[in-house]
């Protein structure tokens, strides 16, 4: 791209670089805080005031404790299963749904859209959802985590909007060559909206990675199927003062319980272990944010 390097342009660029640097710094802090906390010596950590700018001492005892927890490893495997299978299934359904909703020639497009959007606002709530899953025989099975949440309506709408931004001429010319709907969808629309699809895959994957509620509800008797986040949540809300606000079972956990100082560090370690892998997803998504994808397919 040819750019005129005017003075105002340069001032703006410099300003932009600095501003984004500051934003990055602020955004980096919570992760750094947790990371440093996880290696800190519990006593020094307690004594420390203000932002954590380095680990207070250096120990790996917290990680040893977390890795000795038998629930962590099992749940790790479960989470990976839910993320991989769940994301694939959801993406497939979302592609189909978005495709139909993007077709002007499809007469039921509007009524269907209204029917779908309506469900974003009204739901029967926890109890009927649970009864349904239990009547379908999915209770305490992995299917209960994946099937009842097969489509996020909002993601489908985003994808539909992206599909509609693809010039109609692309699809039409393919159809003239005898391509069917699925061919148009997978050969033309998917490659041209790769960036948006990558984002939605990430939405689903991250959503699944962070999700704990369906497992808490639909897998009541199977701790061996619980995902990592549910275990993490249990560790986070146990004993910590802010956790107790959420944890109403406080009375059961005897109030005179005294926990070791190390627990604060263990909490940070657990967060790191549960967060770092999913953070690595973004660069793969980012790779697809390249200009000119649409052009490439046009020229094909």
């Amino acid at each position: 791209m040819i750019e005129r390097r005017t003075v105002s342009n340069r001032i703006f660029d410099a300003f932009n670089v600095i501003l984004l640097f500051l934003i990055g710094l602020i955004c980096l802090y919570p992760m750094v805080h947790v990371l440093f906390g996880s290696f800190s010596h519990p006593k020094e950590l307690l004594n420390h005031t203000g932002p954590l700018l380095r680990p207070m001492g250096f120990i790996t005892r917290g990680y040893e404790i977390v890795f000795a927890n038998p629930n962590i490893w099992v749940s790790y495997g479960n989470t990976i299963f839910y993320v991989v299978v769940g994301t694939a299934a959801r993406m497939f359904m979302t592609l189909l749904g978005a495709y139909v909703l993007a077709q002007d020639s499809f007469m039921l497009r509007k009524p269907m859209m209204i029917i779908f959007v309506f469900t974003m606002y009204f739901s029967g709530g926890l109890i009927p959802d649970f009864l349904l899953v239990s009547k379908l025989g999915m209770l305490n099975t992995r299917a209960a985590i994946i099937i009842p949440n097969l489509i996020a309506t909002w993601n489908m709408i985003i994808l539909r909007t992206a599909f509609r931004q693809v010039p109609a001429s692309l699809g039409e010319s393919a159809r003239l060559d005898g391509a069917g709907d699925l061919t148009v969808l997978f050969r033309i629309l998917v490659p041209t909206t790769k960036a948006t699809i990558a984002v939605i895959i990430m939405y689903y994957a991250v959503g699944e990675w962070n999700s704990w509620f369906p497992a808490a509800i639909y897998l009541p008797g199977r701790r061996d199927l619980h995902p990592l986040q549910l275990i993490l949540r249990e560790i986070l809300i146990s004993h910590s003062a802010s956790g107790n606000v959420i944890n109403q079972s406080l009375e059961f956990v005897d109030q005179d319980a005294v926990e070791g100082l190390i627990e604060d560090v263990v909490r940070y370690c657990t967060i790191c272990i549960a967060t770092v892998p999913i953070l690595c997803v973004y660069p793969f998504v980012q790779k697809h944010f390249v200009r000119g994808v649409m052009m490439g397919s046009l020229k094909e």
Binding site: L126, I217, H226, E234, I237, S238, N247, S249
Partner: peptide, 19 residues
């Protein structure tokens, strides 16, 4: 034993009642 996930005792219990 049936152990509810901690923090979800209330929901878990009521859903077992319902079902």
């Amino acid at each position: 034993f049936v152990h509810p996930p901690s923090g979800q005792e209330e929901e878990n219990f009521n859903l077992l009642v319902v079902s």
